[in-house]
Design a protein around this nucleic acid. Structure first.
Lengths: 151, 151
DNA sequence: AAGATAGTCTATCAGTTCAATAGACTTACG
DNA sequence: CGTAAGTCTATTGAACTGATAGACTATCTT
């Protein structure tokens, strides 16, 4: 049940790209900047952002003054999309996956106990991740920042 | 976000061991029987059941008429226990794990967006899996079996 | 046009994990 | 004693993971 480094770095990078610049809008940022701030190997991050770009979540500009920026407003990019692109299906087993279904080989899928439970797990994860946008995360962070929870 | 074969096989085997025998109680079953019924490589299943035994979830008896049986009633064995034994922590990232916490290196864990969200995910998974016993699964299966959902 | 900046693309690598297999050993029963 | 079962440790091959390398392309500035 683990999120890969790829997924983790990707999420961190997207969150960084979602934090508004001086003009109050999602800024254009270079790979090396994000890598440095988030402590991610630059060359690795490069691949990750490229995947995200090819999937349509990021736009990029080459050359001087170039970099990456969100292709859509932070309210319209869910964590679920990001994780799926980088880590594949959310479902714990393929036979309950919406995006990559594959039969698991049990005699009757409808009455397979494992499938019933794992279906619930998949839905719980998907509801959470698909229901949370980059903007939602930013809002939550601001909230915690303002009213810190005592440790 | 994936369940390993180890985890999958383990869950299937435990469910099989939880289904009552002729006397209405969880029966003693041999590895090869389970392997055959559930289509699991016997030698692989062997290791899995051994782990489950060493963790205290199963009892075993050697020799003629031996085999495995549940160490506790099916109501007292949760899927969460099984998965943790076979696949490790449920948490997507170590910094939100209850059983295997490790810092993730972000400057402030309390205000880390990733951590906030993944904490929710971990809780959702844990609540589901820890809140579902082998008996619960059996009950659900019987229910579906009785009132099949049209495909 | 030259040179610098920044993304693009593909390959490769070492290390780990995963799924499975093998085989020798131990315990219990009859 | 012999057979039926679980126990234990090692090994294997394939895949995956995280990371690194380097050559290439587009864009801007001067």
């Amino acid at each position: 049940m683990r999120l890969s480094k790829r997924g983790e770095y990707g999420l961190r990078a997207m969150m960084a790209l979602a934090t508004p610049g001086p003009d109050g809008r999602p800024p254009v940022v270079q790979i090396r900047d994000i890598a440095e701030r988030e402590q991610i190997p630059a060359k690795f991050l490069e691949q990750i952002l490229l995947s995200l770009k090819n999937a349509g979540l990021l736009h990029s500009k080459m050359g001087v003054g170039g970099g990456y920026h969100l292709a859509k407003p932070p309210t319209e990019i869910s964590l679920g999309q990001i994780v799926r692109i980088l880590d594949g299906p959310l479902a714990p087993v393929k036979c309950v996956s919406q995006m990559a279904y594959e039969p698991c080989g049990c005699p009757n899928e409808e009455t397979c106990g494992l499938r019933l439970v794992m279906g619930d797990v998949r839905n719980a994860i998907a509801n959470l991740l698909d229901g949370t946008s980059l903007a939602d995360v930013a809002r939550r962070v601001r909230k915690v920042d303002k009213f810190p929870v005592s440790k």
